[in-house]
Amino acid sequence: MPTRADAFTPATPGIATALQFFTLLMKGDLDAFAQIWTEDAVQEHPFGFDGLTAALTGRDEVVADYRRMFANRSDMVFTIYDAHQTTDPDCVIIEARGVSRVNETGKIYDNRYVALFRLRDGRIALNRFYFNPLVTLDTFKGVLIGPGLSKQD
């Protein structure tokens, strides 16, 4: 049964770090969110589409993109389906769902994720973020996706 990210009990320190990704976004605390990334962190989007940046490089770029994405979102809830600690203590996989309101359009964004986190010194060095790009396109086209909107200017 899925559990809200802020109520999920982590079994390992690595899972606890990965869960912070979701809980801090739910809280809208992007200053604390910035602190869970290494300076040279990368977020990859393997299932991208034309108009979506394939990878964000460096903590500043990653956090700036989240600030832009979450500037006008509300009712953000992440639920966790499962958390997998691999045999490598610095590699965690989280299965999750995210739901929020996109206030520019009134649409509800509802997507499923598989996120692979590679950690270094207790911080996120890599987030390989898998999601359904069709849901993202439908919800954000013309709002956050379009010419010049998906890349850092």
Rank of each mutant, 00 (worst) to 15 (best):
N111C: 01
E61L: 06
F131G: 08
S74E: 05
N103D: 09
A96D: 04
A71P: 04
I80E: 07
Y66S: 15
N111W: 07
F131D: 10
G98D: 01
Y109V: 05
V62K: 02
N132Y: 05
R120L: 08
Y81L: 06
E104W: 00
E95R: 06
V114W: 08
R112S: 10
H84K: 04
C91S: 13
P89S: 05
L126R: 10
Y66C: 12
R101Q: 03
T105V: 01
L126S: 10
Y81Q: 09
L126Y: 06
N127S: 15
K107S: 04
I94G: 09
Y113V: 06
I94R: 10
T87E: 12
Q85A: 14
Y130W: 13
F117W: 02
R120M: 06
I93H: 04
I94H: 00
R123M: 12
V77T: 10
R67T: 08
F117E: 05
A96G: 13
A115H: 13
Y130M: 13
H84N: 07
H84A: 09
Y130H: 15
N132V: 11
T105E: 00
P133R: 12
A115N: 15
L119A: 08
R112A: 05
C91A: 14
A71I: 08
A64C: 11
E104K: 03
C91T: 15
M69R: 15
L134K: 11
Y130R: 09
E61C: 02
A71V: 10
A71D: 10
R73H: 05
F78L: 03
P133E: 11
E61Q: 12
L126D: 07
N127H: 14
T87N: 12
L116E: 12
S74Y: 04
R123K: 15
E95Y: 05
D121T: 09
D121E: 14
N132P: 02
I80C: 09
R67I: 13
N72Y: 07
R118D: 01
V102W: 04
R112Q: 09
F129K: 09
G98P: 03
R68I: 08
A64R: 07
Q85T: 09
R68L: 08
N72M: 06
D110I: 01
D82K: 10
I124D: 02
V63W: 07
V92D: 00
R118K: 15
Q85W: 06
V63L: 01
T87F: 12
I80W: 03
A83W: 04
D121Q: 11
R101Y: 00
R128Q: 15
